[in-house]
């Protein structure tokens, strides 16, 4: 019988447990998981020597069929994507899911039109939270501190709350913290745990600045070679995968927060002794306020340049679920 062979670009190898325990096994057992006669040749992007900012272009070239899409990096070529993950929009999982659902078809349409790829699902690495080596009791305490950030939106946000944003690569952050090049740094608690950040910090503030959303997408060429019932099966399988990841991500998040402060249950990481700073309503307010004050206007300006309806669509779809006018 005719088996189909797909090639997939995965998350970089070192991105953690979601890649290792959910994504890679799914693609390696693709036929079984989808019930389709399809085998997937799965390659983490860093093993290809392709930069993650180039994913959409490589997909358009047609060499690959499925991609585990890195949203922030690829908003270079398609700023519409970043509407998924504006700083302050999703401080928790529940809101993150709502945003992802509300915005799904906007991205799907845009990706199909611009890059001939179809969106299959959206999933989160999880809340990106704050780690500091100086005592903090609330978010506003980062005023005057140097904070490691990883992109433009976050940099603007840190400026807004009075900190100095310092772009440092993930690999260099541990050292930068230990030597005081930065006082605080932002990432997911699980990544922080495995990279040993708690060795060089004292406080964690479990307030999600961004949900670090990512997506799965398939080239239209591959999609269209499937029969309608096969397409439905494929979509169902990816819905299953992404929903599994949503749950898993939340478990990991809670578990890693526990590990970092030395509490049980802690099954996925090493135990440390960080002080966990309780998130106050004022902090939530401050983060939520970033959407209209900083991240939306900055993003809208860039996005509307390449996609005239960009912010209009966002205001029509995502703004209502966030309770913004």
């Amino acid at each position: 019988q005719d088996r189909i062979k797909f090639k997939a670009i995965g998350q970089p190898l070192a991105t953690g447990l979601i890649q290792k325990n959910k994504e890679q096994p799914f693609f390696e057992n693709f036929a079984q998981r989808t019930g389709l006669p399809i085998d997937v040749d799965y390659k983490p992007i860093d093993t290809l020597g392709v930069k993650d900012t180039e994913q959409l272009r490589v997909m358009k070239a047609g060499l690959f069929d499925i991609v585990s899409l890195r949203v922030s990096q690829n908003s270079r070529d398609e700023p519409t994507l970043l509407g998924l993950d504006l700083v302050g929009a999703s401080p928790d999982y529940a809101t993150g899911r709502k945003v992802a659902n509300a915005y799904f078809s906007t991205i799907d349409e845009r990706l199909q039109k611009q890059f001939n790829v179809k969106l299959l699902g959206v999933w989160p690495f999880g809340p990106q939270v704050l780690f500091c080596k100086k005592p903090i009791a609330k978010l506003a305490d980062v005023k005057g501190m140097k904070v490691r950030v990883y992109d433009q939106n976050l940099a603007k946000f840190i400026e807004m709350v009075g900190g100095t944003p310092v772009p440092v690569s993930f690999a260099d952050t541990h050292q930068s913290l230990s030597l005081g090049v930065v006082d605080c740094a932002i990432t997911g608690p699980s990544s922080a745990n495995s990279a040993g950040w708690p060795e060089v910090t004292t406080h964690q503030l479990p307030l999600g600045f961004q949900m670090a959303l990512n997506g799965y997408a398939i080239s239209l060429k591959a999609w269209n070679q499937l029969k309608p019932d096969q397409q439905a099966k494929l979509k169902t399988a990816f819905d299953g995968l992404t929903s599994e990841i949503w749950t898993y991500s939340e478990e990991l998040f809670q578990d890693a927060l526990n590990c970092n402060q030395g509490k049980d249950p802690c099954t996925t990481g090493k135990k440390f002794k960080l002080t966990n700073v309780a998130v106050s309503p004022a902090d939530l307010e401050l983060v939520r306020g970033a959407v209209t004050k900083v991240s939306l206007p900055v993003w809208a300006e860039v996005c509307d340049k390449s996609n005239a309806d960009c912010s209009k669509k966002w205001n029509a779809t995502v703004a209502p679920v966030l309770g913004l006018k």
């Binding site: 020597g49 392709v50 930069k51 047609g62 060499l63």
Partner: peptide
């Protein structure tokens, strides 16, 4: 192994190297 799409995929790789 992969025909013309391979050639088109080289483009982003080259920029990626030179912009590193």
């Amino acid at each position: 192994a992969y025909g013309v799409p391979f050639m088109d995929s080289i483009a982003p790789v080259v920029w990626g190297v030179h912009n590193e």
